[in-house]
Design a protein around this nucleic acid. Sequence first.
DNA 1: TCTGGGGTCCTAGGACCC
DNA 2: TCTGGGGTCCTAGGACCC
Length: 425
Amino acid sequence: MYALVDCNNFFVSCERTLDPTLENKPVVVLSNNDGCVVSRSKEAKDLGIPMAAPAFKYKELFRKHDVKSFSAKFELYNFKSQRVIEISTAYVDKADFEVYSIDELFLNLTSFKYINIYDYCVKIKNEIKDKENLPVSIGIAPTKTLCKVANRIVKDFPDKFHGVYSLDTPEKIEKALKWLDIGDVWGIGRRLAAKMHDSRVYKAWDLLQKPEMWVRKIMGIHGVRMINELKGIRQLELDSPSPKKSIAVTRSFMEMLTKKEDVRERVETFGMYCSERLRKQNTCCKMITVFVQTNRFRKDLPEYRNAVTKVLSNPTNSSILIGRVVNELFESIFKEGFHYKKAGVIVNDFVPEDQRLISLFEEDAQNQHLPVMKAMDAMNKKYGKDKVRLGSMSGENTFGRAQLSPEYEAFLKNNTLTEANFRFH
DNA sequence: TCTGGGGTCCTAGGACCC
DNA sequence: TCTGGGGTCCTAGGACCC
């Protein structure tokens, strides 16, 4: 069996650990620029606040029901995530788990033949609650997809299951799949859900009644795997952490930018963050993409969006070299006369730092830059983000964040938050 | 006035090769 | 007028996840 440990309303629950008076009250956490709702307490969900709701549309509702809202504090969430991982993984053999996202991890319980797995998971749940004051739900099942189903059941019937549920018999599985809407199956998104409804597939169970060829046609190889997983036949293994295949730094701006130099400063900064993250995993990139966009919601303003990608002749992770390319790409797509709302830099096609193949004809400054770059990284790690930076960066954010609470300031003080503490998915 | 950010995988089609 | 067969690699776009 596998178990899926999933934190309930994770960001909101983290906020509650700093301020216990938020318990039992409607609470939401907002994205950058305080734009969208990204986490909701149960009370907030009950008020009808949907996921990803634009905050400004719900201001009135927030006021009326005294909904507490917070700007996202990712240092805090990453820190708490790490604690949950440490506690949970102490219950399984070394490396017998998969950190799936900031608030979810799978545990492999296959080797535990002579213990009561349900009781074991209750223990895990209680320890996380006792030590970190974070509520979690644990779904137990023979496959990852069914673990998701079990987890869903825990969350939807809180009075019945108290945080842990095990899909451990064919009868339970059948009952669950006849209950679960097809759109709530892991791997079925909005588009596929609509297609399913067109074909009169409404419940997860209905999908199992369809011929495999049909599923193969509509969903590709994913669909076949999904069907087996739902039947309890394992198709997805637990993955060990792997280096990233792409790195993206993209931001919406608090206010729309019209000056070319302002947008340029932003994309150059994003390029530098990409470079830093490349160096952190000791890889170089071979491709760089830059994009710029106007505000797609402002129908009264002319719209423009464009992206351009360059393949490098020599892989690099030097901030200077990447900055140069970013600048060149930016020049090729920037157009005067628009109100820019969002931009980003994406790097991909990675090779390890020490396995670069160098073009015979292009000059390669990567190795000259690397020692300087690593020294820069070391200083920034010691003295703080962006303390040492390229001249092209202003070092300021153009997205806003609410004032930090005294509790949070205290948290930051008491916990040395080096990136090394975190494991990003 | 105000609408997030960061990932992965799969597939179809085109370019190119022999 | 007629125009093979079998590959590989790359890319853009679509779908999904949190």
